[in-house]
Nucleic acid binder design. Structure first.
Lengths: 181, 181
DNA sequence: AATATATGAATGAACG
DNA sequence: CGTTCATTCATATATT
């Protein structure tokens, strides 16, 4: 009766011999692996630090980070939370688009509450979803407008081709802003 | 609590979300965990051996209850590619989280210098990074902004209130150091 | 099934 | 300090 449409099902895992591993358990497993990962990192770091002090009497560590990396890559489902992400329904999307067109590019918190309230009548939604949607919508609208700034310069390295036009980037460095006491 | 069943089960696992984890992958997972276990043992042993020789200025091992943080979304610590904006290493993040929880929500300028000094031993970092991190951490913990995280699709009750927090709590993990089932 | 794209979410940095 | 921007990550969906 209160069922939602497509994404109503929790992401659980069913094993073939009538056991079930829930999302939660998957999460626990994944976290456990992360714990190992972190521990190893720290130990390796410590080892390096100490090796610099006593490089002679210490056997070289044969472990590399590739082992850790490997873990993350080889097991889909453990890399990230098994949680699903919100997907706007057609109606919701339509309303959101309308609002955006009407100039509500960055709704205030109060406005977001109202919008959320309205949209919740057309499907499951939270204020964060609404907030994120507007943020993303705006960002992506802006990105499509910028690539007209280039004056034939090609000094950009782009080792990895990213589609977006990177804006000016002040890139402040070792200069604390103004940490107050 | 019951991740034991997950690790011990030889059958394959199917997630409802287009993902399938086979026998093989489970096996891989198990082996990886064993690898971690072994590596950790060796490193700990090595650490002890070295500590007896050089008990001087070795950073304290952070293993224990504070391990379960934010590795949920991507594990940038193991990706070698350098990025434009600073990304805290796992160790750095751990230390920062610890400091934050210990009440250093708004470190003084002097304190930031110290923290930066400390963290620079675990990766590239600047005082600005530290400053920003605390600012962001505080602001988002306060969720004065909008709360994050998805709109639940699960069998949530009629919770009109949005999730109050999104950060992982320092949840104890009593199994982290003894994954053998 | 593998790859490409669209887009929700997370977060470092900047702005007022 | 609260809020917003910019960039990145991960997943859902589309395409081949």
């Amino acid at each position: 009766v209160t069922q939602r449409s497509a994404m109503a099902n929790p992401n659980f895992v069913a094993l073939h011999n009538n056991q079930v591993m829930t999302d939660e358990q998957m999460e626990t497993l994944r976290r456990q692996i992360c714990v190992y990962s972190t521990i190893c990192s720290q130990l390796v770091e410590m080892h390096r630090a100490m090796s610099q002090q006593q490089p002679s009497s210490v056997p070289t560590l044969l472990m590399g980070q590739h082992m850790l990396y490997d873990l993350a890559q080889g097991n889909p489902g453990f890399r990230a939370s098994a949680r699903q992400r919100w997907t706007p329904s057609q109606t919701q999307l339509q309303i959101l688009e309308n609002l955006f067109e009407q100039g509500h590019a960055t709704p205030s918190k109060q406005k977001i509450k109202e919008i959320t309230m309205e949209l919740s009548q057309h499907g499951q939604i939270s204020e964060t979803n609404v907030y994120n949607w507007f943020q993303n919508r705006k960002a992506r609208a802006k990105r499509k407008q910028l690539p007209s700034q280039r004056g034939g310069e090609s000094e950009n390295e782009t080792d990895d081709e990213y589609p977006g036009e990177k804006r000016f980037k002040p890139q402040r460095d070792s200069n604390a802003q103004n940490p107050k006491s």
